[in-house]
Write a protein that binds this DNA or RNA. Structure first.
Lengths: 185, 185
DNA sequence: CACCGAGACTGGAACGAGTCAAGAAAAGGA
DNA sequence: TCCTTTTCTTGACTCGTTCCAGTCTCGGTG
């Protein structure tokens, strides 16, 4: 994800989007039976603009809107929203958890190995083929989660035209984010 | 840290032999060009017997064989083996990393939501259908990782016993009960 | 429209899983 | 065997996240 610096404009004028995906946070909170508070609206707003943000990224974005919000509050809000089904939490290996407001459809993700950028991928072949493992060893499966690993456009470009010095790119992944796998082109 | 130029790249992948996870640890280590040490043999041995173990589980199992081995040594060994392609590391959301000796084939996993038990699942429809997302948003994808979430046989039985059928699909990500382990395909 | 209680936030400490660094101990080729 | 290289031991430390206890506030009620 790209935590751009300039953080949004104070309020979202309901851009008349197709679904209520990007609808007014207030409305969604109410609909979910959750209290409407500033931190919650802010969190939903931020996530709407920057999907796949980490808790910390959300926290700082929220702070830049509201002034000061405790980290704990952000975690609480996120947890509450996840519980209520307003937010989905994904946890790609080797990085902190990321959150997004697109719920309901079981879409998947592509994650960049080098910078951690994440993008949505609609369900693979149209229908969920992955939902039926040939043999689940007796498990009762209720969800299939797919993560595609690869290289995002910009990292790929950087790598191809490389020879470039260590221009401080965005070291998004602090933990071991490089599982050198390759093979299989 | 971005995987900048080279540094620790260029490891020589071991010719993946499907039977490797049954072979003598010593032989495998040699074949991979790694030194043969007691901790390493023990780690591979343990993983052979208990696939999908966490680092901590491996550590304690190894200790019960060798007496005393530092946690750090276990992490080092695991990392070395992963690098050499002798061990694969998986990291299901909400639990610590797990390791297995079955490498080479890109198989997937089923994870039990309530106890964390993990089992292998052979690639879904025979061939990897998941490897080709319809639209990867410009990403260059090189691997697809699939995790099936559900309930393992014993947890399922337990649940059915005292409540209605599995209807509640809530994210049970609490620290799962310990040492509830595997079952093979 | 002030009141009140469950449910939100605050701040700080605590935790689990891993990583880093420096030195002691071995593995194995010469 | 000796010596170099790699591995193991200790122990401090980071990160992301959670737990706790106290304070504040949303929003339903009198």
């Amino acid at each position: 994800m790209t935590p751009r610096t300039g953080t949004e404009d104070g309020h979202v004028p309901v851009p008349a989007d197709p679904r209520h995906h990007v609808a007014d946070p207030r409305a969604r909170l109410r609909a979910a039976g959750l209290r409407v508070t500033a931190p919650r609206q802010a969190v939903l707003g931020v996530l709407g603009e920057h999907p796949h943000s980490t808790a910390e990224a959300v926290a700082s974005a929220v702070r830049s809107r509201l002034g000061s919000v405790s980290t704990q509050a952000v975690y609480d809000v996120l947890a509450a929203c996840v519980d209520a089904g307003l937010v989905r939490r994904i946890e790609p290996a080797g990085s902190a958890a990321r959150y997004e407001t697109r719920t309901g459809d079981n879409h998947h993700h592509v994650v960049c190995r080098s910078c951690g950028a994440t993008a949505d991928v609609d369900c693979v072949v149209g229908e969920p083929p992955c939902l039926t493992p040939s043999d689940a060893g007796g498990f009762v499966v209720d969800e299939a989660e797919v993560v595609f690993w690869g290289t995002c456009p910009s990292c790929h470009a950087a790598r191809v035209g490389l020879a470039g010095p260590t221009t401080a790119r965005r070291p998004v992944t602090q933990h071991e984010s490089h599982h050198h796998e390759e093979r299989r082109t």
